[in-house]
Amino acid sequence: MDVIQEYLDRCRAITETVEAQKSEIQRVARWFADTILAGRMVHVFGSGHSRIMVEEMWPRYGSFPGFNPIVELSLTFHNLVVGANGQRQAMFLENVPGLADRILRNFDLSELDSALIISSSGCNVVPIETAELFQKSRVKVVALITKEHSDQSTSKRSDGKKLGDFADLILDTGAPVGDAMVSITNLETPVAPGSTVGGAMLVNCIKAEVARLLTEAGHPPKVLSAGVVVGTEKAVELFEAAYDEHAHRLAKLYENVGKKADS
């Protein structure tokens, strides 16, 4: 029983699922590029392990400013597993109604913005409400889910709606129901999830296409690059410039917070 080969074969199938979504990826990239060219930001949110995809988008090597990574530690801090700040609390909090509103209350949203919401099941309350609130602000929402898993899962939201119900476009990781892809003889439950593989491919396909569009528009992005590729001095220059741009873009999300509510 070659479980390594089985996992690799399943990953190849995921690659085919991602490739079949090329036109959707291009459409998403156009929305995100338009947001960045307008001086605004693409909001990227995920609770639980979906945080992985948020950080895959920005900031890391090969990425660039224009994305607002919304990572709530109360929903994503898994290191301790049990005890204070444990996994039980995080799993409870990601299904608390109203928390999404408290998170987005920190930002002055614009219809020029766009958003990427990641949730493999698409069934937890906070990601669903986050997408709903973005749409109410006329922000285009892209949902990154595992479609087969989401279709067969039950929403934690009282009205039964899922993340896909509040998305302008849905991308599918291609992973199976339950996410885990390898079955082992005499082991009751499968192992080795696949949504991270598909999610990372989708995120980086989007990233590459956005970079192309920005460059063709005459605004090449400031890409975080390794010194071994561009030289130490240039790498430092790019990192500093990229972080500065991120700060300037982020400042726009804060400067009018509360003013509309108070007026």
Rank of each mutant, 00 (worst) to 15 (best):
R10G: 01
N204Y: 06
S114H: 10
A84K: 08
P220I: 08
E132Q: 15
N85Y: 13
S155W: 05
A143F: 09
L171W: 07
G231V: 11
E188D: 11
N204V: 03
D179Q: 01
R157H: 11
G122F: 12
E56A: 02
D159A: 00
A100M: 11
N79Q: 08
F32P: 01
P65H: 09
N68P: 00
V191F: 04
P221S: 12
G48V: 06
A20Y: 05
P69F: 07
T15C: 12
A242W: 15
G218R: 11
A33L: 09
L169M: 09
F45E: 03
F77L: 13
V42K: 07
V96R: 08
H49T: 05
N68I: 01
A131Q: 10
A241T: 15
K156L: 02
V230K: 12
R51T: 08
E56H: 04
G227D: 13
L169D: 00
V139R: 12
L73H: 08
P69R: 07
P127Q: 12
K252C: 05
L163G: 01
M41W: 08
E6A: 07
W58I: 02
C11N: 06
N186V: 03
M201A: 14
V125G: 02
P69D: 03
R249D: 04
A167E: 05
V182S: 01
